[in-house]
């Protein structure tokens, strides 16, 4: 796993109007601007429903969390949402610690996250 962030944005065939955002690498002070520059335009341009797959995310710090919450707030303003899937235990512990998982509910898998949408 490189100490960078790679962001892949994909359609979800079985769920129109929702984008899957795969985050691979580390989301920190050095890399999280990329999250903002790639995700906010998506939200602004009319796709505020996002599912973030964190299975490839090995690290997040408070700046990464701040920017993730910023995306959540912007999506919410547009009537959408951000859901998290496949969050590793170390990251989930940090998110729990500061109340983030009360807003961004983590789901074990993409299928679990999609269940409530159908």
């Amino acid at each position: 796993m490189g100490r960078v962030i790679n962001i892949n944005i994909k359609d979800i065939p079985e769920q129109a109007g929702v984008k899957l955002v795969e985050l691979n690498g580390e989301l920190d002070t050095f890399t999280s601007q990329k999250l903002i520059s790639e995700i906010l335009p998506l939200i602004e341009q009319g796709t505020p429903n996002l599912i973030a797959d964190l299975s490839g995310l090995s690290y997040i710090n408070s700046t990464g969390i701040y920017n993730l919450l910023h995306c959540y707030t912007k999506a919410k303003e547009k009537g959408g949402y951000v859901k998290l899937v496949a969050v590793n235990d170390n990251i989930k512990e940090i998110l729990d610690m500061i109340g983030v998982t009360k807003l961004l509910t983590p789901y074990p898998t993409l299928q679990d996250a999609l269940v409530g949408l159908r």
Binding site: N61, S62, T63, I65, Y66, L69, H70, Y72, T73, I94, M97, I98, G99, V100, K102, L103
Partner: peptide, 24 residues
């Protein structure tokens, strides 16, 4: 932040979470 978390306002636009995480 503790007040905001207790009110379910974890998406506060304020920064300053870093040292709070450290403290925990």
């Amino acid at each position: 932040l503790q007040e905001e978390i207790s009110k379910g306002l974890a998406d506060s636009p304020h920064r300053g979470r870093g040292l709070i995480i450290v403290q925990k």
